Amino acid sequence: MDALMKRRSDLRLLLMQIRTEAKVCDEEHRSFASYSGLAPEQIDILNVFQTPTFSPGAAAGYDALLVGGASEANVLEPARYPFVHQCEKLLRHVVTTSLPTFASCFGFQLAVLALGGRIEHREEGFEMGTLAIRLAEAAREDPLLHDTPDGFAAVSVHRQYAAQVPSGCERLAFTEQCVHALRVSGKPFWAFQFHPEVDRATLVERLTHYRDHYTEDAGHLEQVLTTAQETPESNGLMRKFVDRILLS
């Protein structure tokens, strides 16, 4: 092995977190670490609710940037959540510097806006639960998705969505409703509308916790939870990101 090649234990990542509740913050941090194959101590946190103003170069010195989801914020309300524009600046910076980036859900929406795309809102009939994700043509040559089966299961809960990818990006995966994965062309930058860091057990935990935010009533919640599936292909993407991009 090349003497200059990093070992897994050498990696240090930054997680940009957009959450307020300590229990969910901790669960998200540990989920990212677990599915990356890293120790939680290898992933530092920039919580934008706690630190709404930060430099576009905040991820400098790290091996990669991770961006998580959010249930307490809306990318379409930057006046209410002023850190949205700060996050966009950071994402444009990591694209420019080619820092490897892996974004999930809210992070996907931030990436679309940062790259000049459009995010739309759906108040009713939005995706929630375990979905079948279709692969686009570009996925055949993608380092992370080329060996992922078409129609793989993934967890997704979101009211905001993108119907198209921004200019300069490749559409990698989708559902009938929206785009679910993109890559910035020629850059180590991936964003997923679904949650690669969330498995069935975590979906049940999160939806139960946020039931008033996402579900109409107890019957609706029960319907979503009883149809939840395991999502091994989705959960494996973070390990592929570490192995194939950061350690290759």
Results as ranks from 00 to 15, higher is better:
D2I: 14
A3Y: 12
A3D: 10
A3F: 14
M5G: 15
M5L: 15
K6F: 08
R8I: 13
R8N: 10
S9H: 08
S9D: 15
L11W: 02
L11Y: 05
L13I: 12
L15D: 06
L15C: 04
L15G: 02
M16Y: 09
M16F: 11
R19Q: 10
R19C: 03
A22I: 05
V24Q: 00
C25L: 02
R30C: 09
R30Q: 10
R30K: 08
F32Y: 03
S34R: 15
Y35V: 07
A39Q: 10
A39L: 11
D44F: 01
N47E: 03
V48N: 00
T51V: 10
P52E: 08
S55C: 13
P56W: 13
Y62I: 12
Y62V: 13
A64D: 03
L65D: 15
L66W: 07
G68P: 05
S71P: 00
E72Y: 03
E72A: 08
N74K: 01
A79N: 04
R80S: 13
P82Y: 05
P82K: 09
P82N: 06
F83C: 04
H85N: 04
E88A: 14
K89A: 15
L90I: 07
H93L: 13
V94P: 03
V94G: 09
V95K: 15
T96Y: 12
T97R: 13
L99C: 09
P100C: 09
A103M: 08
S104E: 09
Q109D: 11
V112G: 09
A114C: 07
R118H: 15
H121I: 10
R122H: 03
E123D: 14
E127N: 03
R134H: 10
R134Q: 09
A136H: 04
A136K: 04
E141C: 14
D142V: 12
L145G: 01
H146R: 15
T148F: 01
T148A: 06
P149V: 12
D150T: 14
F152M: 02
F152A: 01
F152H: 07
S156Q: 06
V157S: 12
H158F: 01
R159K: 11
R159A: 04
Q160R: 07
Y161E: 01
Y161I: 02
Q164F: 07
Q164T: 15
V165I: 14
R171N: 11
R171C: 09
F174R: 00
F174I: 01
T175L: 00
T175V: 00
T175F: 00
T175P: 00
E176V: 01
Q177D: 06
V179P: 00
V179T: 06
V179M: 06
H180K: 10
R183E: 10
S185G: 07
K187P: 03
P188L: 12
W190K: 14
W190N: 12
A191H: 05
F192G: 02
F194Q: 06
L203V: 04
V204N: 04
E205D: 12
L207G: 00
T208N: 15
H209V: 03
H209K: 11
Y210C: 02
D212G: 10
H213L: 07
H213G: 01
Y214S: 03
D217W: 12
D217E: 09
H220I: 11
L225Y: 00
L225W: 01
T227F: 02
Q229D: 09
E230R: 05
E230P: 02
T231C: 13
T231V: 14
P232S: 02
E233K: 00
G236L: 02
L237N: 03
F241D: 08
F241T: 11
V242K: 10
D243V: 11
R244Q: 14
S248N: 14
